[in-house]
Amino acid sequence: MHIVTGRWCAAALCVALVTTGCQETPHPTPPPSATTGVIKLPGNAGPTNMALAADGALWIVEHRMGAIAEVDPTGRVTQHRVPGRVVQPGSILAAQDGRTADWRLGWIDRPRGFAALIGEGKSPRSGSIRGLTVGPDGAIWFIAASTTPSVRRAHPTEGIRVMASLPGTANQVPQDGLTTGPDQAVWFTMSDGIGRVGHDGRYTRWPLPPKANPRQIIAGPDDALWFIERRGIGRITISGVVSHTPVPVPDPEWIRALTSGPDGALWFITDTQVGRLQLTGTPELWPVAGAKRLSAIVTAPDGSLWLADSRTNLVLRFRPPQ
């Protein structure tokens, strides 16, 4: 594995990424308000996913550009072009060691630029990657949606290993439907149910009602798993007890993404709204001015929310009404 070393600063990052199209765009810190347009991404960016790193940097997948944008706490934007063949990055996460991994399991390591690619999406080794999570062992776990879908484990020095084969086809595995649960197992959604794979590779599945269409799944603040489903949000305990909360989303909108907030509630987005669900309450919804297709949501430590819109190519800072 080739690693470029050196102390990080804005200039050093550009040098490390000069062959990948690193660019910096200054941007002022947004003033506080209910909804503020913070970042205007390029017209063909198509932001689809975000991750907030421990240092306050926001990482944004620019799906249609094959790039990842980094927004530092001052509002400065740095573009990281994904190297290699033309790709469309999808999932992204901030790893425990401060690095950020995209869907090809390529590391954006700020002190060193792109350090190593340990697996390429759509290669015979890993298939099309659907979702990333840091497993209980500190490695990256993901679903390879190849001819026979499987849950796999990736480590920079140990390589990629198949942990469990899954029934069905690649079409039954949604994007980003993967997380690490409170029981230290990996949980994920399939088109007809919820699955679990333990560190020992044992696979368990719980069916859902027909047409539930589960997608993203996250670990909630209550030692349970919460997931998006058609017209609502579902909950499953680690013992497999499932419940459902309807969300009044008007046609043709969908619930697009879900996250756990610092206030102990769940926050979610539809195409044009932000919603909040208390663990024992009913959903609340707020419209987002100018939104066309909200695609990602991340909560900040101060209680505000970062929102991405894949149609307007904007990243917004949203402050919920008190």
Results as ranks from 00 to 15, higher is better:
1 M>G: 14
1 M>N: 12
3 I>N: 04
3 I>A: 13
4 V>Y: 06
8 W>K: 03
8 W>G: 04
9 C>I: 05
9 C>E: 07
13 L>V: 07
15 V>W: 13
16 A>Y: 02
19 T>M: 14
19 T>Q: 15
25 T>W: 06
25 T>E: 13
28 P>S: 12
29 T>V: 12
29 T>N: 08
34 A>E: 13
37 G>Q: 14
39 I>H: 03
44 N>T: 14
45 A>V: 01
46 G>F: 01
47 P>V: 10
51 A>H: 03
56 G>Q: 12
59 W>F: 15
62 E>W: 03
68 I>Q: 02
68 I>W: 02
68 I>S: 04
70 E>C: 09
73 P>K: 13
76 R>W: 10
79 Q>D: 07
81 R>Y: 03
83 P>K: 06
87 V>G: 02
92 I>M: 05
96 Q>N: 10
99 R>T: 15
101 A>G: 01
108 I>D: 00
112 R>H: 11
115 A>W: 07
120 E>M: 06
123 S>W: 00
124 P>D: 12
128 S>M: 05
131 G>T: 07
133 T>S: 13
133 T>M: 00
133 T>D: 04
136 P>I: 07
136 P>W: 02
136 P>E: 09
137 D>H: 08
140 I>E: 00
144 A>P: 02
145 A>I: 05
148 T>D: 08
148 T>C: 01
152 R>M: 15
155 H>C: 10
158 E>W: 11
159 G>A: 09
159 G>T: 08
160 I>V: 14
161 R>D: 08
164 A>T: 09
166 L>Y: 10
168 G>Y: 07
170 A>N: 06
171 N>V: 07
173 V>S: 00
174 P>H: 08
176 D>E: 14
177 G>W: 07
180 T>W: 03
180 T>A: 13
180 T>R: 14
181 G>E: 03
181 G>N: 04
185 A>Q: 13
185 A>L: 04
186 V>P: 06
187 W>I: 06
188 F>N: 01
190 M>N: 01
192 D>T: 14
194 I>P: 00
198 G>H: 02
200 D>C: 10
201 G>P: 11
204 T>R: 15
209 P>I: 01
210 P>C: 04
212 A>M: 15
213 N>K: 13
214 P>C: 09
216 Q>R: 15
222 D>M: 11
222 D>W: 06
223 D>E: 13
224 A>E: 12
233 I>T: 04
236 I>Q: 02
238 I>V: 15
239 S>E: 13
241 V>T: 13
244 H>S: 12
244 H>F: 13
245 T>N: 10
246 P>A: 09
246 P>K: 08
250 P>F: 05
251 D>Y: 11
256 R>V: 10
258 L>H: 09
261 G>P: 04
261 G>E: 03
263 D>R: 05
265 A>V: 05
270 T>I: 04
270 T>W: 00
273 Q>N: 12
276 R>T: 02
279 L>A: 10
280 T>E: 11
283 P>M: 06
286 W>S: 10
286 W>E: 09
288 V>N: 03
292 K>F: 00
293 R>Y: 06
295 S>Y: 04
304 S>D: 10
307 L>E: 02
308 A>I: 06
313 N>E: 06
313 N>L: 04
313 N>D: 12
317 R>N: 07
319 R>T: 15
320 P>Q: 12
321 P>I: 08
